[in-house]
């Protein structure tokens, strides 16, 4: 009898261990860079995109853990799963799955009280008379801007860009719309109407979930995530998440056409 109960206990332990292993196997870890309201460690839903990712993962039946790290560290890590704008990552790393799940748009932002009148920008030449702030490391094709005699002042954080705008140390900042609006709400809520923006027409870029090539069953998992994305778009729960952050009826134009376009591109460049 004692032998039997010892055997039963051992069997239960083995089953428990097996179940624990299964539970652990149903987890996927992603790296993201703190950039509220898109991704945020301090938000209970991990931000707008975190909310989308968690909903997708729930449908797929997997738990997504988001680890927040500095962007350059995420870019340098060539083996991890990433969340963010794929163009920052694909030069260094191959991914088996790249699924754009949202979009980001940028504008020229300025603080009206520091300007004589509202600013109009039609082309890059129009920036010559202004001191323009950007985030460090986001500036490409330097020769092009040098030839136009346009020079940018780089900052290490979005908060710093915003403070420089308010203090008049820069005239304009090129930044993500949702991020700067979030920061204005946090830092200068009473001054919202003083911060103006000029939309940049070709600034739409995707925010994607990227699964590394070595991740077990990555391709199959990717297909499940794609199906889940389609499902939440069709049943409207995707739109409900977006409206929480953009406001009802304020979703940017062409959202779904752009999401599909980026989806096609990044599906093509996934590594077999």
């Amino acid at each position: 009898m004692r032998k039997q109960s010892t055997f039963c206990a051992a069997a239960i332990l083995v089953m428990l261990a097996f179940n624990l292993h299964s539970i652990q196997a149903e987890t996927i870890k992603f790296g993201a860079n703190e950039s509220p309201p898109y991704w945020s460690e301090n938000d209970p839903h991990s931000g707008m995109c975190g909310e989308i990712l968690h909903l997708l993962s729930q449908i797929v039946g997997i738990e997504a853990n988001i680890v927040f790290e500095p962007l350059q560290r995420l870019i340098n890590d060539k083996n991890n799963n990433d969340l963010g704008d794929p163009s920052f990552y694909i030069k260094n790393q191959d991914f088996a799955v790249i699924i754009p799940i949202a979009l980001q748009h940028s504008s020229f932002h300025y603080y009206l009280p520091n300007q004589k009148s509202a600013i109009r920008i039609e082309n890059w030449e129009g920036l010559k008379d202004y001191k323009v702030g950007i985030l460090k490391g986001t500036f490409t094709q330097i020769s092009y801007f040098n030839q136009l005699d346009i020079h940018f002042e780089e900052s290490y954080s979005q908060i710093s860009l915003l403070k420089k705008l308010k203090l008049g140390r820069i005239d304009m900042a090129i930044d993500l719309d949702l991020v700067i609006n979030h920061n204005i709400n946090q830092l200068f809520p009473e001054e919202k109407s003083n911060f103006q923006s000029i939309p940049i027409r070709n600034s739409t870029t995707p925010i994607a979930m990227m699964i590394a090539t070595h991740h077990p069953g990555a391709r199959q998992l990717g297909e499940k995530y794609r199906a889940a994305l389609l499902k939440i778009i069709q049943d409207g729960s995707y739109q409900k998440i977006l409206e929480k952050y953009y406001g009802k009826g304020n979703m940017p134009d062409n959202w779904f056409a752009d999401l599909e376009r980026f989806g096609r591109l990044y599906r093509f460049i996934q590594t077999e």
Partner: peptide, 14 residues
């Protein structure tokens, strides 16, 4: 190094 997620500033934007 890139420190925070921001828009990549490219000529093609405008």
């Amino acid at each position: 190094a890139v420190n925070a997620t921001g828009p990549r500033v490219t000529p093609g934007m405008l």
